[in-house]
């Protein structure tokens, strides 16, 4: 922490002594820009818009991801999903921009779709692996003690829960990761917009403010989901 502050201080001082021109912002400029956005209430709007998008996109992606992940782990006809998922996974979510534009048109839907795709890719694999990693010893013990098929499924679900929740958290992290790209095409408000505004308006300070906001939001989401997971799986 101290090293970071020291570097910022150096940056500031160096910038004042040798002004680098409008392309490289000083820490003071960044702070000022952030303050002005905060004061005008704009920052709040940007954060809120992005947060809602991530919540919706991540929610849909995680929900579908868990369902498909369960289907994949269940085997049998669920394995039919193997091929489409394997094909789609290596495709970066950003590459979906043209198709999503074509299908959802310009607007919130398209942005949320990109976020959902990013989350889905992570959650589906994580869920499938978590369910597959349940120790057979536990399932056999349950059967030995007389548990019915339904009860055994319950055992599998409980055992896989920590892993599934962890992959959901990773999924949301992935959503924040691609937010800038998701908002790239048509968003007018959002943290990604702030990041991009730096280039369009030649306001590099704003990019830093956006990036910092992004990092903070992603961190906060991760912390919240971790706390939730701790709550739900206190035994783990």
């Amino acid at each position: 922490m101290r090293l970071l502050l020291l570097l910022l201080a150096l940056w500031e001082v160096a910038g004042r002594v040798w002004p680098p021109g409008p392309l490289v912002p000083l820490p003071s400029a960044i702070v000022l820009d952030a303050a002005s956005l905060l004061a005008s209430g704009e920052l709040f709007v940007h954060v809120l818009r992005s947060a809602v998008r991530v919540a919706l996109g991540g929610g849909v992606g995680a929900g579908v991801g868990v369902l498909v992940g369960v289907a994949l782990a269940a085997g049998g006809p669920g394995r039919l999903f193997d091929v489409p998922v394997a094909l789609a996974r290596p495709i970066p979510s950003l590459a979906w921009i043209p198709l999503t534009l074509l299908w959802f048109g310009v607007g919130e839907g398209q942005q949320i779709a990109i976020l959902a795709l990013a989350t889905f890719g992570v959650v589906v694999a994580g869920t499938r692996d978590a369910i597959g990693a349940v120790p057979t010893a536990w399932l056999q013990a349950a059967e030995n003690l007389g548990a019915s098929r339904g009860a055994r499924l319950g055992v599998r679900a409980q055992a896989a829960l920590p892993g599934v929740l962890a992959s959901v958290a990773e999924g949301f992290a992935a959503a924040w990761f691609v937010l800038v790209a998701a908002e790239f095409v048509s968003a007018t408000e959002g943290l990604g917009v702030l990041v991009l505004a730096g280039r369009d308006l030649i306001l590099p300070a704003r990019t830093f403010v956006g990036a910092a906001g992004l990092a903070a939001s992603a961190g906060l989401t991760a912390w919240a989901l971790r706390a939730l997971r701790g709550r739900l799986t206190r035994w783990a």
Partner: peptide, 15 residues
Amino acid sequence: RSIPPFAWLPLLLLW
């Protein structure tokens, strides 16, 4: 490290 690479793009494009 927690800043997505895509966020660096505008800065790089500028510089």
